[in-house]
Amino acid sequence: MGVYRDTIKIVLLCAIWFSFSSGTNVIGKQILTVFPYPTTLTMIQLMIINCFLGPTLALLGVEEAPYVTRRQFVRRIAPLGIGKIMGSVSAYISILKMPVSYSHTVKALMPLFVVLLSYVIMREKYPWKVYLSLVPIVGGVLLATVTELQFNALGLIAALFATMCFALQNIYSKKALKELHLHHLRLLLVICQVAGIVVFPIWMFTDAWELVSAPHNYFQHMWLFLMLPLNGLFNFGQNIAAFTVLSNVSPVSYSVATVTKRVVIIVTSLQVLHNPVTSYNVLGMAMAILGIAFYNKAKYDSNLKSKVLPTHIDDFTDNGSHDSRKQHIMINSSDVTNSNHRRIPMKII
């Protein structure tokens, strides 16, 4: 009876996660069609996460953030905050210029960026099965690209750049979690706090100026006042739901769930937004998604053989498959007091 109860619980959690993720993308596309300001949309999402995630962590009993040196903050936290801004804004530019379904198909290239960047940054090599799994991913994205009816060069570049930013964030968050001994939802909060500080002056010199000088009066669209915060709440809910699933299933099950989530987003966007697609376009999407499944399986098998389960933030960026239960590392008080570095409290950032 307990097995059935746990199964129903996971299925319901995944349904909530997929619904929030699909809603974030579909609502985001509808907003950007009338209100083409990706930086504003990103800033609102960050504001909502910063307002609600702290109390949520306290409610869940997540441990407080430890102290870090200024050197660690500059090397580990600040780049993640800047990368989140660059990746999020670029992702919304891609959705603004292209259909959601095609944008998410391009994001299927994340494993390719992870493999390449891991080698360049950390000289990390993978078994041949991992490299082989990249072939259907690249082939599927190429097929979807050449058959995309609403292709846009700027949208493609933005999607590729966003995918690269998320891949870098995966790599560096892995380093940050290992070095700083942080719960990964706590790290998400700190990253969002840094990103919120960084994005505000950017918003002032880009979207804010355009909104003031724009001839179109967006205040006539009263539904925007509802949809903008609703999009932010969906984004917040997707992060919490993803973490909850992550902490309740195995790495392989989470890999399957992330692939299923991407399929649900693509299908939902096609059904709701009625994007025109061809049979070859759908075939390319299917190839890319299947390639991700092969990649996740090959990567997990590789980690299992080496008896090391990698740790990184995932659905807060995009595609991950790791168990958060491996991430709870206690910090010794002597590690904080015996350092020669000046330390700053991360929790007041």
Rank of each mutant, 00 (worst) to 15 (best):
residue 245 V to Y: 04
residue 6 D to F: 08
residue 269 S to R: 07
residue 251 P to M: 03
residue 278 T to R: 09
residue 133 S to L: 09
residue 307 K to G: 03
residue 236 F to A: 07
residue 125 K to F: 11
residue 23 G to I: 08
residue 348 I to H: 11
residue 343 R to K: 14
residue 269 S to P: 09
residue 215 P to M: 03
residue 144 A to K: 12
residue 199 V to K: 03
residue 248 N to K: 14
residue 316 F to P: 00
residue 35 F to M: 10
residue 344 I to Q: 04
residue 23 G to W: 10
residue 61 G to C: 11
residue 261 K to F: 00
residue 258 T to W: 06
residue 201 P to H: 06
residue 347 K to T: 11
residue 183 H to G: 08
residue 51 C to P: 07
residue 46 L to R: 08
residue 234 F to E: 04
residue 50 N to A: 12
residue 284 G to E: 07
residue 143 L to P: 01
residue 141 V to P: 07
residue 85 I to S: 06
residue 286 A to M: 13
residue 250 S to A: 10
residue 19 S to Y: 06
residue 234 F to W: 12
residue 27 I to M: 13
residue 13 L to Q: 03
residue 187 L to N: 05
residue 34 V to W: 04
residue 57 L to E: 04
residue 315 D to Q: 10
residue 84 K to L: 12
residue 299 K to Y: 15
residue 149 L to G: 01
residue 337 T to Q: 00
residue 21 S to G: 10
residue 8 I to T: 08
residue 236 F to M: 05
residue 191 I to T: 11
residue 343 R to F: 09
residue 221 H to R: 02
residue 141 V to R: 05
residue 52 F to K: 00
residue 316 F to M: 05
residue 324 S to H: 09
residue 5 R to C: 01
residue 194 V to P: 00
residue 101 S to R: 02
residue 68 V to H: 05
residue 235 N to C: 15
residue 325 R to V: 06
residue 83 G to E: 11
residue 264 V to Q: 00
residue 124 E to N: 09
residue 213 S to G: 10
residue 286 A to V: 14
residue 325 R to K: 06
residue 270 L to A: 03
residue 261 K to N: 15
residue 213 S to Q: 13
residue 17 W to A: 11
residue 60 L to N: 13
residue 135 V to W: 04
residue 189 L to Q: 15
residue 332 N to M: 13
residue 342 R to G: 11
residue 249 V to F: 07
residue 193 Q to L: 01
residue 29 K to I: 09
residue 40 T to E: 04
residue 348 I to P: 03
residue 14 C to N: 01
residue 148 E to D: 14
residue 229 P to V: 05
residue 167 A to R: 09
residue 147 T to P: 12
residue 270 L to W: 02
residue 320 G to E: 03
residue 158 A to L: 03
residue 303 N to I: 10
residue 309 L to Y: 01
residue 139 G to E: 10
residue 112 L to E: 02
residue 310 P to E: 10
residue 305 K to T: 05
residue 17 W to D: 03
residue 161 F to R: 06
residue 114 V to M: 12
residue 126 Y to Q: 06
residue 37 Y to C: 03
residue 299 K to Q: 10
